[in-house]
Amino acid sequence: MMGHAPEPLSTSAPAGTTAVPGLIPDLVPRIPWPRWVFIITALAAGALIISCLLCVACCCHRRHQRPRKQPKDKEAVGLQSARSSTTAHLVQPDVDILESSSEGARKWGRLLLSLEYDFGSQEIRVGLRQATDLKAEGTADPYARVSVSPQAGHRHETKVHRGTLCPMFEETCCFPVPQAELSRTTLQVRLLDFKRFSEHEALGELHLPLDTVDPQHVLERWYQLGPPGTAEPKQIGELCFSLRYVPGSGRLTVVVLEARGLSTGLAETYVKVQLILNQRKWRRKKTSTKKGTTTPYFNEAFTFLVPFSQLQSVDLVLAIWAHRLQFRAEPVGKVWLGPRASGQPLQHWADMLAHARRPIAQWHHLQPPREVDRALGLHPQRRLPRPRS
Rank of each mutant, 00 (worst) to 15 (best):
L378Y: 02
R370G: 08
P387N: 14
Q344S: 00
L376T: 07
H379N: 12
A375Y: 11
H348D: 05
R374H: 09
P369Q: 11
L353W: 01
I360E: 13
R358A: 15
R383V: 07
H379D: 08
M352T: 03
P385M: 03
P369S: 10
H348G: 04
R388I: 11
R374Q: 15
P345I: 00
M352E: 03
H348T: 01
H365K: 07
L378N: 14
P368S: 06
G343R: 01
G343V: 01
A354M: 06
E371R: 09
H364I: 03
W363I: 08
A361N: 05
M352Q: 00
D351G: 03
A375V: 03
D373G: 04
L376Y: 02
R358E: 15
L378M: 12
P369I: 14
L366R: 09
V372H: 12
A354W: 00
L376P: 01
P369E: 12
H379C: 08
L366S: 02
L384R: 15
P359R: 09
A361L: 05
H379L: 15
W349P: 06
H365T: 07
Q344D: 00
G343L: 00
H364P: 13
R370E: 14
H365G: 12
Q362R: 11
I360C: 10
G343M: 05
R357A: 14
A375I: 03
P368F: 10
L376Q: 03
W363V: 07
R357K: 10
L346H: 06
R357E: 15
A350E: 15
I360L: 12
A350Q: 13
D373N: 08
E371V: 05
I360Q: 15
H379V: 10
Q367T: 13
Q367F: 01
R374V: 12
M352G: 02
D351V: 01
Q344L: 09
V372N: 13
R388T: 14
Q362G: 05
L366T: 01
L346G: 03
L378A: 11
P369L: 08
R370H: 14
Q347S: 11
P380I: 13
L353E: 01
A356I: 04
D373W: 06
M352V: 00
A350P: 02
R383G: 01
G343P: 05
P345H: 04
P380R: 12
Q347L: 00
P359M: 01
I360R: 02
Q347H: 11
A375D: 10
R388H: 07
I360M: 12
R388F: 07
W363D: 13
H348Y: 02
H364R: 11
R383Y: 05
G343F: 05
G377D: 09
P385K: 08
L384K: 14
Q367N: 07
P369W: 08
L384C: 06
R386Q: 15
P387F: 15
H379Y: 12
W349A: 02
G377V: 08
A350L: 04
H365E: 14
A356C: 10
H365M: 06
A356N: 06
L353G: 03
D373T: 04
G343N: 05
P369M: 03
D351P: 00
R374L: 12
L384M: 11
W349N: 05
P368A: 10
W349V: 10
R370K: 06
P387Y: 07
R357W: 05
L353Q: 07
E371H: 03
